[in-house]
Amino acid sequence: MLAYIGRRLAIAIATVLAAVVISFLLVHATPGSPGAVVLGPSGTPAQIAAKNHELGWDRPLWIQFLDYLGHLVRGDLGVSLIDGRSIGADLAARLPVTASIAVLATLLSGVVGIVLGVTAAVRGGWLARIITVGSGIGLSLPAFWVGILFVLVLSLQLNLLPATGYIALSQDPLGWLGSILLPVLTLTVGGAAIIARTAAAGMREALGQEHIRTLRALGTPTWRIRYVHALRFTSVPVVSVLGIQFIGLFGGSVIIENLFALPGLGQASQAAVSAHDFPALIGVVIVATAVVVVTNLLLDLMVAALDPKVRTA
């Protein structure tokens, strides 16, 4: 197990380093320069060149990269070209917004999806057909349109939840929950549909396994066969899908955060791209990559714990 963890850690570190290199090179390959961003349209070529020299933009690329890497190791992501704010502090304030939405949506998708999927596999009949059709509809609906529908019904018509805005957890826990509930529900619709189909297929396969038939022959209670032995077999693909779903929700938060006016990483990335704020853009990429890499690492360890065959693969 230790060798497996060591291999995964090495892959995780290499992935983050590759993301840093690629984002650094892509930023330097794009048109424009920090001097032009700082001075704006009124800057003359001479002023822009002087500003680029001040910022070190005209130094050899490998020297700039080593300098940036040195700051990054110390936890320094630099400052914004637009307003001079600390990028690390700004992203640290935005990270809980995106993370809380992705985590809660993933957990709620898991609970709802597992209940529906197991019910469809165990009960069968008309109930299974309804769940299958419903999950198909949930998968076909874009999250953006689901969010608009929830805003129309739950906010504008029923006035149950705020349509936009964010309240910090430390400021008002109930207000925080209310401010993120709509985006969480929006992301749960498609996520629960995927988990329901995965859980249903896994449960049907599990109930047909040889060891399950042996347990039935030995007189093991039906509830124990279904919800202990078969569910453990089903948990491996479900955990894998949940991990991938969290990564997708975390990395694809731009649309949802802009729809509900949430100050998360997705909004920060769009603002950095629009303003050509190169340091902020690299910072968002690095933070998002680090979260995805850590999630993948934890996912691999969970799957390995559930299925010992993975550790020897």
Score class of each variant (00 low, 15 high):
A304Q: 07
A143M: 02
V238D: 12
A10W: 04
L72F: 15
A12S: 15
A272W: 08
V112R: 11
I87G: 03
F233R: 14
R123D: 09
L91Q: 08
A268W: 00
L262V: 05
A271M: 13
A196R: 06
V189R: 02
L139V: 12
L158G: 09
P237E: 02
Y4C: 08
W62C: 00
L160H: 05
G165W: 03
L161G: 01
I22C: 00
T30N: 08
P183I: 11
G110M: 10
A143H: 06
V292Q: 15
G84P: 03
D67K: 11
P263I: 03
R85W: 10
I148V: 06
F246P: 10
L152K: 04
N296Y: 10
S269R: 08
A168D: 14
G264L: 08
L181G: 04
G208H: 12
F250A: 01
L108P: 05
A89V: 11
K309C: 11
G191N: 01
G136T: 02
L127S: 15
M203I: 04
W176M: 05
N159E: 13
P142C: 12
A92C: 10
A196S: 04
V97H: 02
T30P: 13
W57E: 14
M1T: 09
R232K: 11
A275G: 03
P142N: 08
R311Y: 07
R216D: 09
I137Q: 06
I256R: 07
R216T: 12
P31D: 01
R197V: 04
Q171D: 12
G125H: 09
